[in-house]
Amino acid sequence: MAHLVQGRMEIDIGIRSPPKKLYNVFSSKPQDISDASPDNVHGTKLHEGDWGKVGSVIHWDYVHDGQPKTAKERIDALDDENNKATFSVIEGDLLNLYKTFILIVQATAKEGGTGTTVHWTIEYEKVSEETPEPYSLLEFAVKVTRDIDANLTSGA
């Protein structure tokens, strides 16, 4: 019997920035992420399409587990009303380990109106049973989100 090679991981992070501000960075200004989180993201380039448009492809240079990596991500869905963005990795280092890798980020105002809950979901299909679960990639998303929040709330 084969072991599960498909999976889903989720995590919630509390931040101070308003939901719309955080969503706007991921949805239409990912080029700002390398300024906010320079230890993790070294650069983003628009590969095809337009910033903030579904179907556009973004090239990422980033550091994961101490190693320089690259990825191309397609914007699959943008839900402006619910501050939710969905991306698929279509090229790069992650596809050596995963057949599919989908990232979903949603920012929601906390009850009472102070702060935001950021919900990250990673959906993936591993290349083999030996491929590790992507816990460190979820941690990477948390670090980058906290860096963006610090940047957005610093008044910079």
Rank of each mutant, 00 (worst) to 15 (best):
E125F: 08
G49A: 08
K143R: 13
V118N: 05
L78S: 14
S128H: 05
T117I: 15
L94H: 06
D50Y: 05
S136Y: 00
A77N: 12
I11F: 00
P132K: 02
I148H: 10
D93P: 01
A85H: 05
I13S: 10
G14I: 14
D50W: 02
Y124Q: 08
E91Q: 13
D147Q: 04
G55K: 07
P18H: 11
G49R: 04
F87I: 09
G55H: 10
Y124R: 06
I102S: 06
D12K: 14
T100E: 09
D39A: 12
S136H: 05
Q6K: 14
N24D: 15
R16L: 13
L103I: 14
A156C: 11
N96L: 11
Q6T: 15
L94T: 08
V105Y: 09
K53T: 13
W120P: 11
A2R: 07
E125M: 03
V127R: 13
N96E: 13
A156G: 15
Q31N: 08
R16G: 07
S136C: 01
D65V: 10
H42P: 00
P132F: 00
F26S: 02
W60P: 02
N83H: 14
V41I: 14
R74V: 15
I75T: 09
P19A: 11
L95N: 12
E10C: 07
S34W: 03
H119Y: 01
Q67H: 15
K99F: 01
S34N: 07
L94I: 11
H64P: 00
I33A: 01
L4H: 15
T114P: 00
L103W: 01
K72Q: 14
V25M: 11
D76Q: 11
Q67G: 06
E125G: 00
D149V: 05
N83C: 15
G112Q: 07
I102N: 12
E91R: 06
D35R: 03
T86R: 09
S154I: 07
G112R: 11
S128L: 02
